[in-house]
Structure formats: C-alpha cells, structure tokens
C-alpha cells in the first residue's frame, strides 16, 4: 500500500512537471502569451510564499513565522545578501519562539 502511494505520487508529480515542459514546444504561443507565462509563475510562487508565511493547515500560523518572514523580506528589499535573508528570517522566528511567542 505504501509503495502504491509513493509510486502514484511520484508518477503524478512527474507527469505535471514533464507535461508543462514538453507542451511548451508543441504550443505555438503568441508573443503576449509568452510574456504572460512568467507572470503566472510569479503569481503562483507569490501565493505559495504568502500562504506558507501566514497559514498552517488552513489556520493562522502564529506571529513568530510571519515576523521572521517580514524581517527577511525587508532585508531582501534593502538588497542584503541572500544568505543573510534566510538566516535572519529563521533566526527571528526561532528567537521569538524561544521567548514563547506562538
């Protein structure tokens, strides 16, 4: 049963990935549609980042995580190195939790 779950997930996930990549060649997209694709991908990633920053299993994730993300984003906006962005975000959240902020 476990093997079936893993295989089904693996095949399905790879199917989504490879379908997009291979379809790209088959579709003769007009210029405006080609320009729209990265916009769509950016919208998906932004939605993913926002839900990951604010929610956990459909509920508010607590304050520590969004606070950490906010610190990271502010640093990134001020053009801090990427390493610093990641460490500061994680550090802020970890520190707040240490101070028993949920």
């Amino acid at each position: 049963m476990l093997i079936a779950v893993i295989v089904a997930l693996a095949v399905g996930t790879y199917g989504f990935r490879v379908a997009g990549v291979l379809l790209r060649d088959r579709l003769d997209l007009p210029e405006w549609a080609r320009q729209l694709l990265p916009v769509g991908a950016a919208a998906l990633l932004a939605a993913l980042a926002a839900t990951a920053a604010l929610t956990e299993v459909g509920r508010f994730a607590g304050w520590a995580r969004p606070a950490g993300v906010l610190v990271g984003v502010l640093l990134a906006w001020r053009r801090a190195p990427f390493v610093l962005v990641v460490i500061a975000a994680a550090g802020t959240a970890a520190l707040l939790r240490l101070l028993s902020v949920p």
Binding site: R65, G72, A90, A93
Partner: peptide, 13 residues
C-alpha cells in the same frame, strides 16, 4: 530553528 520562516522569506527574496 525557525526554518518554516526561512522558506517563504527565501522564496520572496
């Protein structure tokens, strides 16, 4: 470790 905050922040960066 605050890793749950590292990912969205990295993605946005």
């Amino acid at each position: 470790l605050g890793l749950d905050a590292a990912f969205p922040a990295g993605l946005i960066a």
